[in-house]
Amino acid sequence: MTDSSVRAIVGLGNPGAEYEYTRHNAGFWFVDQLAEAYRADFRVESKFQGVTARIRIGGSDLLLLKPATFMNRSGQAVQALASFYKFAPEQILVAHDELDLPAGAARLKLGGGHGGHNGLRSVHQHLGENYARLRIGIGHPGNKDLVLDYVLGRPSQADLRAIEDALIRSQAALEMLVTQSWSKASQLLHTDPEKMAAKKEKGPPPEKKPT
């Protein structure tokens, strides 16, 4: 992925107050955070089947989209946006909740499968698999039969704080992706924050004296 290649950030989630604070809406949380940080207002865009906002990072204009189609039809809104602006799949970053990562973790990924995620499955159907993703960890209930209730439930206070920390790091990574490179953004986001803090606290290694 080349520098500043991302042109749109799509947050996946379900519309409506009953879903607003559920784990499945972590993608919505991320684009809401971006809109607040950059003082952008969402507006209804019927042709994109959702709400959109515009932000500017480091001289680059980015579109934010929250589909209003419900999770399992998210691809309709993403395809409409991509077709209208003629965005290539790799120019679209899809932010979504990720069961396979613990709460507090977040990862960037380009391409690959949908992993059973209904929102990603829909995007695959309409856009193919070569789009970028921001995987926001929400943890796993430990039993696949509990997944539906889990993703549509609210996280614990501890998990919510961890997810919020991950969203802050994700915003910093996005800014680095746009202004510098995908590799530097990935390195920033994928580094364990506890290890980073411990390294800073420990300080640099002592200088070796010449022998």
Score class of each variant (00 low, 15 high):
Arg169Gly: 02
Ala132Asp: 06
Pro67Asp: 00
Asp165Ala: 15
Leu63Cys: 03
Ala17His: 09
Ala77Val: 04
Gln171Gly: 12
Ser46Gly: 07
Pro210Asp: 06
Lys208Thr: 12
Trp182Pro: 00
Gln171Ile: 02
Gly115His: 11
Arg7Thr: 04
Leu148Val: 11
Ala8Met: 14
Val78Pro: 00
Leu174Glu: 07
Val147Asn: 03
Ser74Tyr: 02
Ala185Glu: 05
Thr2Ser: 13
Leu64Ser: 04
Ala198Met: 10
Gly112Thr: 11
Glu194Ala: 13
Ala173Gly: 08
Gln157Trp: 10
Thr69Met: 09
Ser181Asn: 08
Pro210Gln: 07
Val51Glu: 14
Phe30Ser: 00
Ile136Phe: 05
His96Thr: 12
Asn130Phe: 01
Tyr150Cys: 04
Pro15Ser: 01
Glu36Met: 06
His190Asn: 07
Ala77His: 04
Pro15Asp: 01
Ala77Leu: 06
Phe48Glu: 01
Val147Tyr: 02
Ile9Phe: 11
Leu101Met: 08
Arg7Gln: 15
Gly58Pro: 02
Val123Ser: 03
Gly113Gln: 11
Ser46Phe: 01
Glu18His: 06
Ile55Gln: 05
Gly112Glu: 07
Leu110Cys: 13
Ala198Arg: 11
Gly153Asn: 08
Leu188His: 14
Gln171Trp: 05
Ala173Asp: 09
Val51Pro: 00
Asp61Leu: 04
Ala106Pro: 15
Met176Ala: 12
Gly75Glu: 00
Glu129Asn: 12
Val123Asn: 02
Arg133Thr: 07
Val6Leu: 15
Lys109Leu: 06
Val123His: 05
Val178Asn: 05
Arg73Asn: 09
Leu12His: 01
Glu164Ile: 03
Ile9Lys: 06
Phe70Ser: 01
Glu45Arg: 11
Lys47Ala: 14
Thr52Tyr: 01
Asn72Asp: 05
Arg73Ala: 11
Asp61Pro: 00
Tyr150Gln: 03
Leu167Ser: 07
Pro15Gly: 00
Tyr85Asn: 05
Gly116Asp: 08
Ser74Thr: 06
Gly11Asn: 10
Thr191Tyr: 05
Ala158Pro: 04
Ile9Cys: 12
Tyr85Gly: 04
Glu207Gln: 12
Glu36Ile: 01
Glu164His: 05
Gly128Val: 08
Leu146Val: 00
Asp61Glu: 13
Lys200Phe: 07
Thr2Glu: 15
Asn130His: 12
Leu64His: 03
Leu93Ala: 05
Gln33Tyr: 04
Lys66Tyr: 09
Ala26Lys: 06
Thr22Gly: 10
Gly116Arg: 04
Leu101Ser: 14
Thr22Ile: 03
Lys199Pro: 00
Leu160Gly: 06
Ser156Glu: 15
Arg39Ile: 03
Val51Met: 14
Lys200Tyr: 07
Val178Leu: 14
Leu188Met: 13
Trp182Thr: 02
Thr69Phe: 04
Met71Trp: 01
Arg107Ser: 14
Glu18Gly: 02
Ala40Gln: 10
Arg107Gly: 13
